[in-house]
Every structure is written in C-alpha cells, then in structure tokens.
Design a protein around this nucleic acid. Sequence first.
DNA 1: CTGTTAGCGCCTTCAC
DNA 2: GTGAAGGCGCTAACAG
Lengths: 344, 344
Amino acid sequence: MISVKKIAELAKVSPSTVSNVIHGRFGKMKAETLERVRRALKENNYVSNMNGRTLGRHGSKIIAVVMDYLPRDKLNIAQDPFFGGIIGALEQEVRTAGYFMMLYISAGVEESLRMAASWNVEGLIATGCNAENCRQFIAGAGAFNIPIVFIDAYYEGGPSFYNVGLQDRLGGFMMAGYLARMGHRRIAFLADAREPVGVDYERREGCKEALEKHGAPFSAEDYVYISNLPDERRRILKDFIKRRLRRYSALFFASDYLAADSLCLFQDKGVRVPQDVSAAGFDDNIFARHARPQLTTIKQDISQKAFFAVRLLIARMRKEPISDSRIMLPVSLVIRRSVRDLRG
Amino acid sequence: MISVKKIAELAKVSPSTVSNVIHGRFGKMKAETLERVRRALKENNYVSNMNGRTLGRHGSKIIAVVMDYLPRDKLNIAQDPFFGGIIGALEQEVRTAGYFMMLYISAGVEESLRMAASWNVEGLIATGCNAENCRQFIAGAGAFNIPIVFIDAYYEGGPSFYNVGLQDRLGGFMMAGYLARMGHRRIAFLADAREPVGVDYERREGCKEALEKHGAPFSAEDYVYISNLPDERRRILKDFIKRRLRRYSALFFASDYLAADSLCLFQDKGVRVPQDVSAAGFDDNIFARHARPQLTTIKQDISQKAFFAVRLLIARMRKEPISDSRIMLPVSLVIRRSVRDLRG
DNA sequence: CTGTTAGCGCCTTCAC
DNA sequence: GTGAAGGCGCTAACAG
C-alpha cells in the first residue's frame, strides 16, 4: 500500500500538498501540480490508511454492531430470520452512511466494550440486550465515551438510553383484541423464555390487557414456556398438546418462527389449524408466509428498524439535538388463515 | 481511553516497560515494578488502541467478510437463511481465532478491496462471487497482498485460488440418482438464475450426469428458471404448473428455500406433493424441515464451511504450507417425504 | 532491568 | 501555493 509520503516523492511535492489534493483543498493550487499529484494517486492506486487516519483523531468511521445472542440458542442465531435480516439491513444503512461495520456476536458486554474502545469505534448498535446488559453497556459506553443505540431493548435507565424498538405492547394488544373479536376467550401466549423479558414481556402484557378489556381472563398459567432449543420445544409441545391444549381455542406465539415451528409439530400430531385450534404469530416474516395455513400475525418492518437505528446513532455521534430518543416503530395486524372465526 | 504513555507516567516507568508488561515480557522484571504497572493498567481500564498497534506493522487482527449479494434479490439477503447462517458461523470462527470481523456487503470488488486495503485487513473471505468476481478479487488482492479465501466459488484461475465449497456436483448426482432409483424418469431442475453458474451449474450438471447414467434424458428445457424475485417467481411457476408440470414426475430445486417457496404455491394451486409431483431440495436447512411435506434434500453443513474457510485463511495469513487449497465439503442425502416411490 | 528513540501514515498548523 | 514539523498510540531496537 502506497502512502501519502511516497506519493509526495513521486509527484515531487510535499506530503501536505498531497493531503490537500486528497481533501479537495486545491482552490488556489497550480493546475500543473494538481494534475501531477492526481496522476500519482491514480496510477499508484492510493487508498488511505484508516489506522493512520484514526490515530490522528479523525474518526475511525467504524460502527460496531454487537449482538448479545449467547443467551439464546446457538442454533437459533443461524436460523432465526431476524438475525440475518437485521444484520443485512444494518450493514446496508451503515455502508450507505459512509461507515464501516464491525460485527461482534457478543461474548459479554465487557468484551464488546473493549473491542469498541480498542478500535475507536465511533458508535455502537446493540441488539439482544436485556435490562442488565443495557445498564452495563451504558455505564461502560459512558466511560469510554461511545454513543450507543439499542435495538429492541427495554430499560428504565435515565436519559442516556437510546433505543429503536417496536410498539410491542400494542402489537400484543392488537392481536389479542382481534382474537377476542373473533370469539376467542381462552388464549395462551407462548414464548421461548421461562420468564419473559423485553419484547416478549411487552407482547404478553399487551395480550393480557386486551383480553381483560374483553372480559376474558389471562392468568400466569396461560403463559407457556416453549424453550429455544428445538428438541426441548418438541417435548414440551407434545406434552402441551396432550394435557393443556383443549383448554385453549387460540395460541398466540411470540414470534412467527416459534409459531411456524410449532405448527409443524401440530400437523404431525394431527392437530388441525385453525379447525382444532387457532394460531397467531408476530413479525410477519417469511415464516408467516411459508407456514400452512399462512399465519395471521403482527407486522413489523426490520429495514425500518435498521434505518432508524443508524440514523439515531449518527445523530448522537454528531451531537445533534435528538427529539425522540426512544423510537417505537408502528405495527399492524395482518390477517391470513390461521385464526378461525368462532362467531356464529 | 488511556494510553501506554499515561500508564507509564502513573506507574512511574517508561512506556516500553508498560509495553513489556502488556506483552508478558517480564521474566526478569522487578516484582514491585511489575505489580505497580499491572495495577495502573487495571485501575485505569487500559485497552490497547488497535490503530496504533496496526500502524506499527503488527497486524490489524481484522478479517473482512465480503458478500457479493447485490446480483441476488435484495429481499433474499434478509430472508435467505444461508446469509444469516454463514455470517453467524463465520463471526464465531473469526472471533474464536482471535480476530475481528468487518462485514461488507459488496458494492463491487473494487470497493471491497479498497476497504480491505484501507484497514490493513489481514485476510479476506468472499462469498457470492462468480468467476469474474473471483478474477478481479485475485488480481486486486495480489496487488494489495491480501490473502483471500472464497466460499462456494467456482473459478478456473491458477494456483492463487483458495476456496471452501461443497461437492455440489456430487450432491446433484446423488439426488438425481435417488430420484431415478425411485422410478422417476422425467425430472426438471429449477433454479433462480437464467443461466446457472457456480453451485447451481454444478448441481445441475450432477443431476444431468446421474440421469444420463440411468438412461433418462435431461435436456436444456428441463432446466427451469424461476427468478429470485418472489413475485416474478410466482408468475413463472403458475405458468409452469399450467403448461409444463405434467411432463415431469419430479422437480429438483437448487435450494431448500426455492423448493419450500414453490411448494407453498403448489399447495395453493392444488398440486399435491408428492402425489401429483415429487419435489427435492438442496441444503437441508430449516426450510426443508418446515416445509410440508418435509423435503427430501441434500445436506450440507454451513458451520463446517465457516470453520474451514477461517482455518484456511489463517493458514494463508501465516504462510503455512497448504495441502488442499480447494476444499470440497461432503454432502449427503436426506430422505424425507417429498419424493414418491414410483416403483410398483 | 529500565529508559530513550524512532517510525509506522495521516492530518493540521504554521512558516516561508 | 507549498513545505516542514509535530503528534496521535504503539512497539522494537538499542543504550545504558
């Protein structure tokens, strides 16, 4: 890789002249000099060394994307369409904004922050964080002075919490309301955390609120844990089908993935959807469309999430005034064929 | 971020002493000094600045992962489980090997190489490359002196081509052989490229070879283009069902994703699988398991791909002797329920 | 055993 | 208009 210094020698000028050319400061430069420098740059295929640049305190142009996925199933990360979707969308936004993306599938907050500091990362986007992670991130990012934006986090932690999320509670509310209007009274909410937190918690709470509003009770045992490990999930679901399924007329899954996966088992076991039981998902991703019957679900737009996350982060990096530090993107109900109309 | 220099001041030693401590060269160091330096490092939360480090010619510790996905459908990249899977798997391998991963969804070879050079990337992993991309990459990587390893590329370009791929042709051969043994004689191969290249080409050739071996002809029109754009694919498939489906007893899709997606349409149109027509996929990912009927397919192991790609790359980076520069990972036949037995 | 020095590539400031 | 100088953080070579 050729350096500014070498280019300067070749063009018989000084390094600073070369630097000036590179940065477009050649208002009053002799045309001939300019031309010579430009040719040298071109012919030698000059690319600036980001390390040198960063060292001089000029911004690394790196945005780190950190995913705290270890608590989740290792298999999930490769399979979960959310992972690929959000990564792809973030990469595009980051690149379009003129930054580079460093991807780090967290081995813990501590590690992630070291990485970010080490590279003089200009900003950090964190996904998959629970409240405790958020706390640690914010504490650490403050110390290292790194702007950080979360995706899909829920955290009650003062003003330095910036997040791009979803109207999860409303989504849960809308779906459960729809189910209730379709005549369903006994509804279970199924997710892959023993004790739901974050988005799962919100979706469930929304569900609960809607049911209460419709005079249909929702109690603790109507929350069903179905594990993030496929094998264990199968086991749990088999048991659920045998012992508890008859209590419910509709199952509201925390994600399309879980719904689609469970529907496969149902089909194997001869449980017909929606004749025997109705099912609903959340996300409206490819799993909802590929499932048979196609899933009635709550739609969210992942590219939008990525777009706003990067935009918010860059605003923070530039210390621009920020009107809304906690963006909650809208959701909508998508009605397909997995919910039966029980009215009359 | 605190620097070595500052630490040196605090511990009342020189920077090089601090550096020695950091790098474990304190064999004969006074215990008291060592302790003082260590405490200063700890208390001030020292993290080394990678830019400074790299500038001193000590390796950036960055491995760049470049995906040339633009030719594919933009939607696909977020949906295609291959994308998330390979990214996740690569990230894990890269991190485990002690490197950082920079992700770049290519805006072209030129751009990718500039990025890599700019960051003094130690190595590059490229996926989604056609032969022309490979050529450009190898030419450019040579100039910048960056070791590069491809994933799933096919390129006849001399010794500096390092690749981790699959026995694609064998996979095609195995599946078509299986179909033939099950009594199928009229088989179509469906993929999303007008003119198949790379893995699609190989899989199709394998298919053709097997069929010829079994005395079943496979001609140009038995290759069916089904677009990478979902809407266009639906249109094409509808037409295919109407006009050409009856000619075939089995459909061999280039990927599980395409198979699963097409099966949805078949179901909507009342085409029963495998009663009316058999279907087979390739990959054995979640789409194969979620499809109904579950897909008979060719299994590949994506984490293995990532593992070998990173291993091969690091071997190149270290200039270790390399016995096999073109790794072809094994495939196997997974029999499920989407292929009908036509014998007797 | 520890400190001094120089240089990696870039950019900016200040002289000329 | 152009050049020289200094500093960002780190490390290795060398000096003491």
